[in-house]
Computed example of a mutant assay.
Amino acid sequence: MIRTTAFRTAIVAFAIGLSGLAKAQDAPTHPVHETNSVSIPAKDIKFFKAGVKAAAGELEAGPAYGNLQTGHHGTFIHMPAGFISAVHTHTEDYYAVVVKGVGANDPVGAKPKPLAVGSYWFQRGEEDHVTRCLSKTDCLFFIVQPGKFDYVAAK
């Protein structure tokens, strides 16, 4: 019985080891790089009207890399002071950092949680939410998204 148990334990350990080896063999042998290194001074970021409007004005987008209209991207979003979005979703998840002003990004009906410069939020795709610029000065956010940016107003 002890030999059988030891044999079974050895077989399980061997199988687990092979599983780990298969995963290690599937891993890249070198780092994957997206593109060449780049540095863009703030004054050289070209903003354009994003088509998302509220009483306070319209969002503007300034690409850092990629293309928000077609796929993976990192983009600066300029939001006018006092801007409050309609309830909306995005198809893709996105990650955001507050660069200027005080923003908020909350589920529908939640009390806005002020996010000062340096704050971060993650927004799951296909989840209703409201985004705001709470400060008296304009807000600037930097977002990273694995796919294209869309703005789908809630029904």
Rank of each mutant, 00 (worst) to 15 (best):
K46T: 09
K49C: 01
V52T: 06
V52S: 01
K53Y: 14
K53N: 09
A54R: 05
A55I: 04
A56M: 00
G57D: 02
E58V: 03
L59G: 02
E60S: 05
A61F: 07
G62I: 02
G62F: 03
Y65S: 07
Y65Q: 02
G66E: 13
N67F: 14
H72L: 15
H72T: 14
G74V: 14
T75I: 11
F76H: 13
I77T: 06
H78F: 06
P80C: 12
A81F: 13
A81W: 13
G82A: 10
I84M: 05
A86R: 15
A86I: 15
V87N: 07
H88D: 11
T89P: 05
H90L: 11
T91H: 06
E92P: 11
D93V: 01
Y94G: 01
Y95H: 08
V97I: 14
V98D: 02
V99W: 10
V99A: 13
N105C: 11
N105D: 12
N105M: 09
D106F: 15
D106S: 13
D106T: 15
P107K: 02
P112K: 09
P114G: 03
P114F: 02
A116N: 10
A116T: 08
G118R: 04
G118M: 01
Y120M: 05
W121F: 13
F122K: 01
E127R: 00
E127A: 01
D128T: 08
D128Y: 06
R132P: 05
S135F: 12
K136E: 11
C139D: 02
L140G: 02
L140N: 00
F142L: 13
F142Y: 15
F142H: 10
I143Q: 01
Q145N: 07
P146K: 08
P146G: 13
G147P: 06
G147V: 10
K148T: 13
Y151F: 14
V152H: 05
